[in-house]
Structures are given as structure tokens and as C-alpha cells.
């Protein structure tokens, strides 16, 4: 059965409250300052050509969002699209909302001239990783490393 469609448009300042709610539902944290700052960088007209902050609406209610940008030569990689935030209201999951958001941002990435999309996930976040896997994403030729600075 085809997924019911949602309307996808660029995020608006008035959407930030819903976005904070959706993120808090998934993470348990209300990151008010973070989302306002992110909107200032990604949702405003400035720098829009390579930065994308989209929301999905069903019956004019925001049910999900996605954030990403085209980054040039990061980690030595030719320009590619990066998705670094995606979430869908719990009650709207498994109805294709995230798939449609990802498809929309990939279309935006294509318009910037790139041919790849990447993301970075917590290794134990199996649910979100399973979503990206279901969208035909495979392991990228990179390994994320970190070091404890208190050592």
C-alpha cells in the first residue's frame, strides 16, 4: 500500500516549537536554544543554497523534520549532502514520513550538484540506522574516531 503523502516545505520560525517537541519526544531533551540557533543558521534565507531545514505536514500539522547541508571537501571528500537531523512524531511513524523527508532533501542536494548523501549515527541507534539502511544507504568509506580529552 503506498504511503500517505505529506506536504513538505522549508521550516518556518513559527515551526520551531513543534520541532522542539518532536525532538524532545525522541531524545527526552528539550534543546530550545539549540533549535533556535540551528534555525538561524539553516532555516533562514541566508546560505539557503546549500543548507536545508524541511518540515513535513499532515493536515497542516507538523509531523516531522529533516536538517542537512551540502558540505564541500569535508574529510577530503568531494562535495556531498549530509543529513544530521531527522525525526518524526511517534504517532506518525511507519507511515513513510521520514522516507518522504529524506527524498525531499536528497532532491535539494541533487540541485546543488552532488551525487551522494551521508549521515553519521550513534552505533547503538539501531532504529534510526535501520531507517537509513531501508533507504538503500550503506556504510561510507569513513570511520568516526574520538578521544577522551580528560585522559
Amino acid at each position: 500500500m503506498p504511503a500517505p503523502t505529506v506536504r513538505i516545505r522549508p521550516a518556518d520560525r513559527a515551526d520551531i516549537g513543534d520541532i522542539i517537541d518532536i525532538d524532545a519526544e525522541a531524545t527526552g531533551l528539550r534543546k530550545v536554544d539549540y533549535w533556535h540557533e540551528l534555525f538561524a543558521r539553516y532555516g533562514s534565507a541566508r546560505g539557503r543554497q546549500q543548507r536545508f531545514f524541511l518540515v513535513a505536514l499532515r493536515d497542516e500539522r507538523i509531523v516531522g523534520f529533516i536538517v542537512g547541508e551540502t558540505r564541500d571537501w569535508e574529510f577530503g571528500s568531494p562535495p556531498c549532502g549530509w543529513v544530521f537531523g531527522i525525526s518524526v512524531r511517534r504517532t506518525e511513524r511507519e507511515s513513510g514520513v521520514a522516507s518522504q523527508l529524506l527524498a525531499a532533501i536528497c532532491e535539494d542536494f541533487r540541485r546543488t550538484g552532488v551525487t551522494k548523501v551521508r549521515t553519521l549515527l550513534a552505533r547503538d541507534d539501531h532504529l534510526v540506522m535501520a531507517f537509513f539502511r531501508s533507504q538503500d544507504m550503506m556504510a561510507a568509506p569513513f570511520i568516526a574516531l574520538e578521544r577522551d580529552l580528560t585522559e
Binding site: 552505533r123 547503538d124 539501531h126 540506522m129 535501520a130 537509513f132 539502511r133 531501508s134 538503500d136 556504510a139
Partner: peptide, 18 residues
């Protein structure tokens, strides 16, 4: 091992069929 678990744990049967 942790990486192997992450890979196996993120690929559903539906994804594997694709």
C-alpha cells in the same frame, strides 16, 4: 565486534531483501 553488531542490528529482513 561492536561495529559488527551495529551493522547486523540495523539491517532488517526487508532491507536485506532489497
Amino acid at each position: 565486534d561492536e561495529t559488527a553488531k551495529a551493522v547486523l542490528g540495523s539491517i532488517t529482513i526487508a532491507t536485506m531483501l532489497r
